[in-house]
Design a protein around this nucleic acid. Structure first.
Length: 639
RNA sequence: GCCGGCGUGGCGCAGUCCGGUAGCGCAACCGACUUGUAAUCGGUAGGUCGUCGGUUCGAAUCCGACCGCCGGCUCCA
């Protein structure tokens, strides 16, 4: 009888030929045997170290999801005779399986597939693993061209593993749960198209997505998170709060900002401008269109013409393009006269609006648009200044993001790609090292992305987590050896010789539109007071109280607050409701009582009320809060 | 760009399968009520059913193209 060792140091005896499942605790979903992930049906050799894997662990969830994907494929094959199946992995939060189907599957069909899956689950079908030669596997899966293609790509003589349950066979490394009965906390979520092997030249398959969890409670919690994300969707909030829209007459991916959204945007931009001014940036302005020549020099027309709007042709045959980036124009400002080392670093900043011809299928709300405004700056430095400049840019970027309320970051440092890269090895090493030091000097975690840089220079990107834990790529700081060369940029050094400056591209918001979307979702539309389009709303109880409200609102405005009187002829209840829906930060109901004594009840947008506040005290507190730019709210409310 | 879904007054939807010339709620406007912390009551007006073309005696409804939106894929200088 072989003896097994469990991680707690417990030695267990296992009858010869018995699977490890026989001795593992109930609820175990798979096991790590001598470091390898195994099914519970695995028969170990004597002395093996066996670690049970719980369904709630990352590995356990992976097994669970992958097994659920098999059940999905089995159900689809039952319901759609002639279907062939490609790959079906576990992914973040769930799984998918790709199919080539004899007829289209629609979202409405998911319920039918789900029912079939649950029948399979109920039958407690065992997942049986076999190891066979390639030839046998090809024979067993001969009706499955995608599987055959995968097997044929493997080395000759390799053995492959097959999993079957109730006669349905799949090529699979495993491991899987012991039987389908342990599955169940799953839900099919959507159906989409996906290219075979992710290549758009390949045929497109039908991908069915699902989510799966260890318990029904976990599944419910996940579905609740999805609902929360939906509730915060900036496209919905943008409409409900009257912030922006995408008029069809203007075109796909082209936003207009309404007065309230425009106000929030202006506040965002104004604060950014002020900080840039303090940090030594010079403000420049450049046109939206340019002759083709500019982007021929920069190389964009050679590489990225597809991503640009097609050219406009003038009578003489000269072609003009909408600019997809601002950098070449900033370079021309640099080149407008001879530059001295004494001027460097030069920092040119612009809210530059650019146009990119994004494919019709990728346009998405404000996060992926065709017309966008970059908070774009280009910094030209000497080689000696590069390190210090990168350090201060990074600090500046993170400080500013924190002021907008994002404070959970990590950074990614992308280094020289393996193949083709401009700039010398030495320059790359210097710049990469400078970025690394800048990153290390800051108390924010950073990860390496080896070989992930663009061919023209290394970069740091800042990722921020929002209020519900989603990660957004925000700022990038990019060193560029390429454009200074293509534009033949130079400055006179203290040695009276010509030198080529190094260029840093950096954007904090990325695009103002996208940043607007991120903040809207981060705050769920309840912007902090300094960014809120409306800060204080007055609700008169009856018509005779309107005049008093107007007086109070005038005082609030004089103190610099954005105040608004709701003089609509509605009930108090209705006006309160309207204020709540508009996410007005603070609401004051004003009636006879307030005419008689200087004591107000302040209602915040969460519905919390504070009674007995004098008007002056309220205004002082709000002015304070609005200027603090802090997430901490006043004594009168919470976010 | 690709696969699938969708497009009906400002917004959310019904009607589309089975063709016979549009309906509900909210919002807007008018009137009554003069109101105390999330929806007062009554009335009025508003729609070439995304656009263009086709089939038909007749099209929101069937067919095609285009535009736009949604979910993914691919892409993202």
């Amino acid at each position: 009888m072989p003896t097994l060792t469990l991680p707690e140091g417990v030695h267990v005896e296992l009858p010869e030929g018995e699977p490890i499942g026989a001795v593992l605790p109930k609820g175990t979903i798979a096991a790590r045997v001598d470091g390898e992930l195994r099914d519970l049906s695995f028969v170990p050799s004597a002395g093996a170290l066996v670690e049970p894997i719980a369904p709630t662990s990352d590995e356990g969830l992976h097994v669970l999801r992958h097994s659920t994907a098999h059940v999905l494929a089995q159900a689809v094959c039952d319901l759609y005779p002639g279907a062939t199946y490609a790959i079906g992995p576990a992914v973040a939060d769930g799984f998918y399986y790709d199919f080539d189907l004899p007829e289209p599957v629609h979202a409405a069909d998911l319920a039918k597939i789900d029912r079939r899956m649950r029948q399979i689950v109920k039958r407690n079908q065992r997942f049986v693993r076999e190891e066979v030669t390639r030839e046998v596997a090809i024979e067993r899966l001969r009706d499955q061209p995608f599987k055959v293609e995968i097997i044929e790509a493997m080395g000759a003589g390799d053995t492959v593993s097959l999993y079957s349950n109730d006669g349905w066979v799949d090529l699979c490394l495993g491991p899987h749960v012991a039987h389908t009965g342990v599955l169940g906390a799953f839900k099919l979520t959507n159906v989409a198209g996906a290219y075979w092997r992710g290549d758009e030249k390949n045929p497109q398959l039908t991908r069915i997505y699902g989510t799966a969890w260890a318990t029904q409670g976990d599944l419910d919690a996940y579905l609740h998170r999805l609902e929360e994300a939906e509730r915060r969707d900036h496209r919905k909030l943008g409409h409900d709060l009257d912030l922006f829209s995408f008029p069809e007459e203007i075109g796909s991916g082209l936003a207009v900002f309404h007065p309230k959204g425009g106000l929030v945007r202006r506040l965002m931009e104004d604060y950014s401008r002020r900080r840039h001014e303090e940090a030594g940036y010079d403000f420049v302005y450049t046109p939206h269109i340019t002759k083709a020549e500019l982007f021929e020099i920069s190389g964009h027309l050679t590489w990225f013409a597809d991503g640009m709007f097609p050219p406009m042709e003038l009578d003489g045959g000269t072609q003009y393009y909408l600019k997809p980036m601002n950098c070449p124009m900033h370079i021309l400002i640099f080149k407008s006269r001879t530059r001295s080392y004494r001027e460097l670093p030069l920092r040119f900043f612009e809210f530059g609006t650019v146009y990119r011809h994004e494919l019709s299928g990728v346009v998405h709300g404000l996060t992926r648009v065709r017309g966008l405004t970059m908070d774009d700056a280009h910094i030209f430095t000497t080689r000696e200044q590069l390190g210090d400049e990168l350090g201060s840019v990074l600090t500046f970027v993170l400080d500013l993001l924190r002021d907008y309320g994002l404070d959970d970051f990590y950074m990614e440092l992308s280094t020289r790609p393996e193949s083709k890269a401009v700039g010398t090895e030495e320059e790359w090493n210097e710049a990469t090292e400078a970025l690394r030091q800048a990153a290390q000097a800051i108390d924010v975690p950073f990860v390496m992305d080896e070989g992930g840089g663009a061919f023209y220079g290394p970069k740091i990107s800042v990722q921020a987590r929002d209020a519900i834990g989603r990660t957004w790529q925000m700022s990038t700081i990019q060193v560029d050896f390429q454009l200074p060369q293509r534009f033949d940029m130079e400055y006179s050094g203290d040695d009276n010789a010509r030198h080529r400056p190094i260029m840093i591209h950096r954007a904090l918001f990325g695009s103002v539109e996208r940043f607007f979307a991120v903040l809207t979702e981060h705050y769920a539309g309840a912007f902090p007071l300094w960014l809120a389009p409306e800060q204080l709303r007055f609700v008169p109880v009856a018509d005779r109280h309107v005049a008093h409200c107007e007086e109070l609102a005038a005082k609030a405005k004089a103190a610099g607050l954005r105040a608004f009187v709701d003089d609509s002829k509605e009930s108090v209840g209705k006006k309160i409701r309207a204020a709540q829906l508009a996410k007005a930060p603070y609401t004051l109901v004003v009636g006879d009582q307030e005419l008689e004594s200087d004591a107000y009840t302040v209602r915040d947008r969460a519905g919390t009320e504070t009674a007995g506040v004098t008007f002056d005290r309220l205004i002082d507190a709000l002015v304070d809060e609005a200027s603090s730019r802090s997430l901490v709210q006043t004594e009168f409310g919470s976010a």
